[in-house]
């Protein structure tokens, strides 16, 4: 009889580097202007390591520009489901949507992204590592895309209980787990200080009626590992113009110009959806 002990099936990657103040962001969705703005902001705030947690393409224009931005700015990266799909020219983005309308818009952006990513860009996406572990002071931080156990698992604030986070930290031998993939930033700390940080996405606003996009800084404050979410303004008007020129759907452009999500809403838990406009 097979019994389950813990959830981890894969060996852990080696812990690399040691940093003091780490900037973490995810979900570029081809918003290359936001990528540049976020990296500049993180450097200005004294980040000594900058990590991108995956999903370079999708939604926005000119996917190669985001790939170039990440490479030229020497950002450390791990792979998202989108990068795996584009990198291997798969049929869809494997985002994990279940609703037909979500899938319709997801497929539109995926087909555009795949058609507009160069061969060189695709091979770079294909070779990104799927997880990483970094050292912050004494503590190990595990970086992943969706969740430590699945690249396209959604970890939302209202559906990720403390007990579950505790199990992830135990099984992945980490003090803090950092992820993205949902597009909404949040974090939860356990009483003992361990916890999970979802950095949200820089590719589109956080469904809050603001046009800024968010990333996270992680550092030790008074002996505790502490995350700060940082809003960053970027040239959204230029992005909207480029999206229109590329013939991307008006629904996507509306999200950039208003800060409210108009698509891929069906995946949101009721609580998160209730906060948005649609």
């Amino acid at each position: 009889m097979q019994r389950v002990s813990g959830q981890r099936r894969e060996p852990l990657p080696l812990v690399q580097g040691s940093a003091r103040r780490v900037a973490l962001f995810g979900g570029a969705y081809s918003n290359w202007l936001a990528v540049e703005a976020v990296v500049a902001d993180a450097r200005a705030r004294g980040a000594d390591a900058i990590w991108f947690l995956g999903d370079v393409g999708g939604f926005g224009p000119h996917p190669d520009r985001s790939i170039e931005a990440l490479r030229e700015l020497s950002v450390e990266v791990i792979q998202g489901n989108y990068d795996d799909s584009v990198g291997h020219s798969r049929l869809d983005c494997a985002c994990g949507y279940t609703d037909p309308r979500d899938n319709h818009f997801a497929q539109l952006s995926y087909d555009y992204t795949l058609a507009n990513t160069s061969a060189q860009g695709r091979s770079w996406l294909a070779q990104m590592p799927s997880a990483a572990r970094i050292q912050l002071g004494e503590r190990v931080v595990h970086l992943c895309h969706g969740s430590p156990r699945r690249v396209n698992e959604f970890l939302w604030e209202s559906t990720t209980p403390a007990g579950f986070i505790s199990g992830l930290c135990r099984d992945w031998e980490a003090h803090t787990i950092v992820c993205t993939h949902t597009g909404l930033h949040w974090s939860r700390r356990l009483d003992d200080g361990r916890g999970l940080v979802n950095v949200g996405a820089v590719g589109r606003p956080a469904n809050d009626g603001r046009r800024e996009v968010w990333y996270a800084l992680l550092e030790e404050v008074d002996g505790r590992l502490t995350e700060t979410f940082v809003p960053v303004a970027y040239d959204w008007e230029r992005l909207a113009r480029e999206m229109a020129a590329e013939g991307l759907p008006p629904e996507f452009i509306e999200t950039i110009t208003t800060g409210w999500w108009t698509t891929c809403l069906e995946i949101l838990p009721a609580r998160e959806r209730h906060r948005g406009r649609f």
């Binding site: 939302w156 209202s158 559906t159 838990p269 009721a270 609580r271 998160e272 209730h274």
Partner: peptide
């Protein structure tokens, strides 16, 4: 409870 509980209610 939907408005104030720590987790989602569906």
């Amino acid at each position: 409870r939907f408005a104030s509980a720590p987790y989602n209610l569906e």
